[in-house]
Each structure stands twice: as C-alpha cells, then as structure tokens.
Design a protein around this nucleic acid. Structure first.
Lengths: 184, 184, 184, 184
DNA sequence: CATGAATGAGATTTCATTCAT
DNA sequence: GATGAATGAAATCTCATTCAT
C-alpha cells in the first residue's frame, strides 16, 4: 500500500501549486512513478483523490494541535491553548509544505464541491471555532467566535507565500499571529 | 465601448467563483451576451482579460481607500488612517462583490502568472505595507510591517465566504478586523 | 487605386512565404496598411485575391519572356528562343522575388483549386510547352515536349531556395539550366 | 503497433494533398479509423507526426537507391550510379505515391519549420549532392554539383502531377530525366 | 496491480466573412 | 473607401475516464 501514499503525496503537491482545475492526473501519476491509467485502480475519481488528500491534511493538523495542547499540562488557560494551536497549525502549514498548502489552496475552490471536500473543510473550521470559544471562556461558540476563527485562519493561511517558505521566519510569524489573536 | 465593460464584468464573475483555470471563456462571452469568437476582438488572450479585471479591481480599491482617508480631515492619526483603509477594503470586497472576489481568488493562483497579474498584486500589497508602516509611525515599512500586512489582508479576504455575503454583518466584520489589527 | 496594388504586393509576399493556407488575410491587410475589413472592399474573397496575384505574376513573366525573345532579332533559332525564355523566367523568379515565389509556392497547392488559379497555371504552362516544341522544330507540342516542359519548369522553380536569394549566383544558375535543357 | 502505422499512412496522404497547413488532424485520425483525441496518444504534436512521416519517406527512398546501386555490380561507373538513383527516386515517388508526394509537397513549406523537417530534407539532399559529385568524378561536391542536385530534384519532383499519376508513363519519365541529367 | 489504448467533451485560439456606420 | 464589431466554423491540444489485457 506504499503506492497509494505516493499518489497522495504527488497529488498534494499538484493540488497545492496548481489548484484543482490546474492539476492534471497524468502529472499526478507521473509524480508517483505511475502511468495515468494506474491511478484508477487506487482512486475512482479526481474528486475522491482530492478528498483523500484533504482528509489526510486535516487529520495531520488536528493531531499536531492535540499534541501541542497536551504538552501544556493538565489545566492550561484558554489563551495558552489557542496559542499552542496557532503554533501547531503554522508548523504543519510551513513544514509539511505540500500537504498543508494543498488544503489552503483548494479548500474553497468551488470546482471542488465534490462531497468530501466541504466536509473536511467544515470539520477543521469547527475545531477552530471551539478553540476560539474556549479561549474566551465561552462554552458554545458565539457569532463573534465564528468571525474571529475566520479571521484567524485567513491570517495564518496567508503566510503561505507563493513560493518556497523560509522556515527561519516561522517563529516570528507565529509570534505575530499570537500577538494579534491570542491576547484579546 | 459598453461591450468591453460587459466582458470585464462577466469575466470578474467567472474568475471570482471558478478561479482562473476553472473559467471558460465561452461562459464569459455568454455572460456578456456574445459568442465566443467575439471576445477576441476585445482581448487577445485569457491572460490579457484577467490582467484587465485585476487592474480595474486594484484601481477601485485604491480609490476607495484614498477617499476614505481623505474624509478623515487634515491631520489624521496613523491608526485612524489604517482603520479607514480597513473599512474601505472590506466595503469594496463585500459590495462590488464579483470584482473584489476575483482579486482574492485569482491573485495567488499559480496558473495566472501572466505578466500583469503579479504586478497588480504587488502594487496593492505595497499600498498596505505602507499603510501599516504609517500606522506605526515608521517612515519605511519594516519586515514586521510586511508580515502584519500579510496577516491583515489574509484575514480580511477570508471574510468572503463561499456564497453570497450578508452585508448586514459587514459593520461587525469591520469592527472585528479593526479590533485585531488597528489598535496595536 | 494605389491601394489595390499595395494589397496585391502584400498578398504576394504572404502567399509566397506562408502558402495559401498559412496566409492570414489580417496579415495581408496589415502589410498593406489596412485593417482586415477593408480588404473586402477590394476583393470579395481570399481566392479572388490569390487569382489576382497569380494573374499578375503570369503576365509579368510572359511579358519578360516576350521582351527577351524580341531582343534576339528577326529570325532567331529555336534553341536561342528557349535560352532567352529561360533567362527571362529565372530573372523574374529571383528578382521580383515575392511575386515570383508566390506562383511557385501556391500554384499546385490543392487548397487553391478556386477558379482562376488553375487557369493561370495552365496558361503559363502552355507557353512553355510551345517554347519547348518550337525549340525542337515541332509545330505542335508532342508528349515528349510536354514532359520536358514539366522537367524544365520544375528545375527552374527549385532554384528558389527557402530564403532570400543571392542574385550574384543568378547568371550561373541560368547557365546551368541552359546547359541541361536548351542544347538537347 | 499497427495503429501507429495507419496514422502515418493517413497523415502522409493528407500532407501530400493538402500541405502542412491544410492538413486537419481530425481528417488524419478519421483516415486511420480513430477519433481525433486518440491521435495524441501516439504523437504528441502535429509537427512530431510530420517529422515521422518525413523520416519514413527519406528512409524508404534512400533504401531503394542503395538497392538499385547495389544491383549494378561491383564497379559501376559514376554515370550508371546516378542513372540508377534517378530510377529509384522516381519509382518511389510515383509508386508509393502518398509518402513520396508528402515529402515533395511539405518539405519546403515554411510552416513546417518544426525541428525534424529541415533535418530530413537536408539529409536527403546531401545524398543527392554526393551522387552528382561522384557521377562527375569529384570526391567532394562542388558548388556546381550542389546546383545540379537542386535542378535534378526539382525536375524529378515536378513529375508528380496534381492528380493520380499514370505509372504507364513512368519509364519514359525516367528516360527523359536521365537524358537531361545523367549524361553530362 | 499496472499499462496501453481509446474516447468524448471541452479548452483556447485563429480565421474568412459579413455588415452597419 | 475604410473601420469596428460580431460570428460560425474549424483548428490543435488537454483531460478525466473507461476498459481489455
């Protein structure tokens, strides 16, 4: 089953840099060392492949957030939790570059309305809505929390430039985001 | 000369909702009441059309910002200037919906490397780098100002949802963005 | 009526270097300092324009041949007549370059079946059939004369290379052709 | 692997009778029993297809020439070699009609500058330059040999009429060409 | 599991032609 | 006489998808 993952990796790269419509399955196959036809043994359709890429990305980011929060100790403040989550999200975005970028580029591209895509997007957004709510002591997210989550994700994802990132800056990026969002 | 503008409008709509690769020139033509071939009398190429759309959008947003700043009176504080610019940008984004959205969707889509695209993008970004710098009393933008401009634009543009916006919320959106960015 | 001739010149250039199918009427118009639509005031169709170009070329070549023959004096030998014609044809071909080349390139291109084209081609070929016949003392051209005319025209037209000719060589070209064909 | 050859055959037919620009790949595909899109599995581009057609034609003609020369016995005179080559070229031209004609029609059509085309053309011309040189006892081709090769090829290729040839005439054509070129 | 082959739909672009002004 | 504008047809090429092997 190593092949399946090579395909997903290759697809993440293509989706990330060329977008959904700009991604050719022939390129994806080539990037995985396969011929076009072979893709269809593993994925029934372009949309299904995209959904898999996104599911993996959301899973990865969620896991990293959970780990970072867990490291905070038994009873962290809401503000610390949000701070940790911000760090985790940005690390994923800038380090496992392709897979992170794939999400950002593709997630609200309308062509990708296919089933799984919106689901993954909403799932991850809900995570953040809760993180924001908790950081403010709200049990259930308010409209204001929702709005802040939108702003926060927008700001973080914008730090992915058009080209290869310099991880050197990563810590100052994290600091800046925390400054604007985690201390309100 | 009305035709040319109908084309640009139609193209903005398509680019906004389908992205660059997802936009079909046949659809654009139909949206302007033309047949496909007729487009090419007005624009030699898809890229040229996109560049025109973006140029118009950047011009519009810049003009609105200038107006809003001008209304502040003779010697406004840097913070007020930034606040006014935020309001102007968000108004353009949510009210002249298609043209604003077109910029947001397309501007960092890699397929659209065509000459004019990056130029327009950089031009507008520079405006914001200066706005941020001025709001902090810096004559020339620092790296920190650049980073903040990225976060700020990312946050604002993220408020464009996937579907028609409710302008009712607009003022609370503006308030939230100002809260996070204009009072630092 | 100078315009009409500028169009024909421009068309000859294009037909010569790009062939019938490769010639764009927009280019032709531009080459004559006009816009595309204006062509249709002077020529109803692409084929008609081509026919005019060819008619002019055939007329020019025929006239030059007649002149060259006339210069031979009152009772030239058949061999001298053919020699003179060869010189005249090659001079036209290499000196009034575009118009000569246009004939050669286009004349047996099947796309140009349109009415006038084949007529002009046959007319000029008949001239040569008679020249060859006369040079051999035949009153009416035989099959052998026809064949020789084909070979002769083919050989001469092949001396038009793909690029600008060096008229310096012209006399040696003429000598070579005469050597192979005019002394049999 | 039969499909590939059916395509090349069909393409040769089209290129021969319609020229490069006049050839529609949809027609070529239909002629090979395929739909347009299927062509692109075998040839990436129109130019690539043309190059293959020409390569095949040059190979065929060269092989026939070599065979004909080989049949002359151990130490043939230069004049006999040229005579044999003339026969071989004309047989190829008039018998494997399409592929021979394709070369003639297309080889100096400017639109077909695509890489391979000029190469094949030059390769075959060099063969003839050497044949002419050898027939005159020159070790290396002179300028005069080059010129004669041009005339000779031009004359031979002109024997391909616009329509189906009558192979009945073939031997008299060969005799005529030999008469003009092989006895100098 | 993987590939070669084919296909239908659709993309952008070019072009000859027409016509009102 | 010339131009701007529009159009229908056709061109090359790309792509997701299917299927027999």
């Amino acid at each position: 089953m190593r092949t399946r993952e090579r395909i997903i990796d290759s697809a993440a790269r293509e989706f990330a840099w060329r977008g959904y419509d700009g991604t050719s399955l022939r390129h994806v196959a080539a990037g995985a060392g396969l011929k076009l036809g072979s893709l269809y043994f593993h994925f029934a359709t372009k949309d299904e492949l995209l959904a898999e890429v996104l599911r993996g990305a959301v899973e990865l980011a969620t896991a990293r957030i959970d780990e970072a929060v867990a490291e905070l100790g038994p009873t962290p403040s809401g503000s610390d939790v949000l701070s940790a989550a911000i760090g985790a999200h940005l690390h994923v975005l800038h380090e496992s570059y392709d897979i992170g970028a794939a999400v950002v580029r593709v997630i609200d591209q309308p062509a990708a309305d296919a089933s799984g895509v919106l689901d993954q997007s909403r799932r991850y957004f809900d995570t953040w809505r809760h993180l924001v709510a908790v950081s403010r002591g709200n049990a259930n997210p308010t409209d204001g929390d929702r709005l802040t989550a939108i702003l926060l994700l927008g700001a973080m994802n914008a730090t992915l430039g058009r080209r290869q990132p310099d991880t050197s800056n990563l810590e100052s990026i994290i600091a800046a985001v925390r400054h604007h969002f985690a201390l309100s």
